Simulated assay, not measured.
Amino acid sequence: MAQTAFAPWTDPDQKPIIEFRNVTKSFGDFTAIHDLSLNIFEREFFALLGPSGCGKTTMMRMLAGFETATSGHIFLSGKDIGHVPPNQRPVNMMFQSYALFPHLSIWDNIAFGLKRESKDKAFIGDRVEEMLRLTRLTKFAKRKPHQISGGQRQRVALARSLAKAPKLLLLDEPLGALDKKLREQTQFELMDIQEKTGTTFVIVTHDQEEAMTVASRIAVMDEGNLVQVATPAEIYEAPNSVYVADFIGDVNIIEGRATQPGLKTGIAWAEGQPPILATPAKSVEAGQSVHFAIRPEKVTIDVEKPDRPNTFRGKVIDIAYLGNISTYHVELAGGQMIKAQMVNARRLANRPITWEDEVWVGFTDTAGVVLEE
């Protein structure tokens, strides 16, 4: 039987596990969160993504109970948790520093919260062993935190957070201290553990790749506002603003004016150059100021003029060789720079295109996104 896609946010009958309803948070004269409303559903791996100071950590701290909303309401499983103290919420928070007890063994670190709740010994033993198996730490149970690696310490903190079976686990930049390769490996481990436990995860991160990898949905934030809430694929392929397009991944953004109204338009972008033929998501007006956003991997680069709806002459100014791909920086008319990417499929690629070469860049009329702001 085909597996149905996990998308509770598309089902009007589904009730969210977390609901922010018109939440504002101010610190004196500074408003960190502006009248924000958001639903997060059970079993989601939800990412709050944005630059420093955008309000994502404030949202997480309000969920944990470390901050109180200035106005509005936060519901967890239908219950208003605005005035419920942190230790009485079915919520656990995993900090970037992991905050492990250095004098306790891995086993005792995981058991700590359960012992505080005076659970019986047999229950604690079974639960700790289950968490050790889940996080693949069984053979390290007797070691102290300083005797294991950074990635393993991260898993201990995760096991300790999950031991009390919270409805909701909050992760504050949990992989920030790990090197790139270990961080990528740990992202997949986190996804696997989240799926096995069925716990709702909310992660705060400023790392776009991390959010794109782990999340079922992403909330892109800017200065206390939600700019776009959507799946990683929607945010990457159909950003709703220049801010989102520019914030997620690599993108070319060309300013211009729509030459004709409707859902097929040209975009006049440089004197004496043919317009960019584009397909806006919604109807535009003739003469309207627009931005055309296109990802580098959707732009081709050729020595001969390709048969594409959009082809423009340019000169190669720079080349970034990244092993699996090469990114070409091509200067078009009027100084407009555009990035084009090519996959290096062969080991010893014969690269006919080099610096200062005259080339053609091209793309289809549906490859880019027309944005009004």
Rank of each mutant, 00 (worst) to 15 (best):
R295M: 02
P296A: 07
P296M: 06
E297L: 07
K298S: 11
K298M: 04
K298T: 07
K298C: 03
V299L: 01
V299P: 00
T300Y: 00
I301N: 00
I301P: 00
I301W: 00
D302K: 07
D302V: 02
D302H: 13
V303E: 07
V303W: 04
E304F: 03
K305S: 06
P306M: 10
P306T: 06
R308F: 05
R308H: 08
R308V: 08
R308G: 10
P309N: 11
N310V: 05
N310D: 10
N310Q: 04
N310I: 03
F312V: 08
G314V: 08
G314D: 05
K315Y: 15
K315R: 15
K315N: 10
I317W: 10
D318G: 15
I319N: 07
A320V: 15
A320C: 14
A320P: 05
Y321I: 09
Y321K: 14
L322F: 09
L322V: 11
L322R: 03
G323I: 08
G323Y: 06
G323L: 09
N324A: 15
N324M: 11
N324L: 15
I325Q: 04
S326V: 08
T327Y: 02
T327A: 08
T327C: 08
Y328N: 01
Y328V: 04
Y328A: 01
Y328Q: 03
H329L: 13
V330C: 03
V330P: 01
E331Y: 07
L332A: 10
A333C: 13
G334L: 10
G335K: 05
G335N: 09
Q336P: 08
Q336V: 15
M337W: 07
M337I: 11
I338N: 00
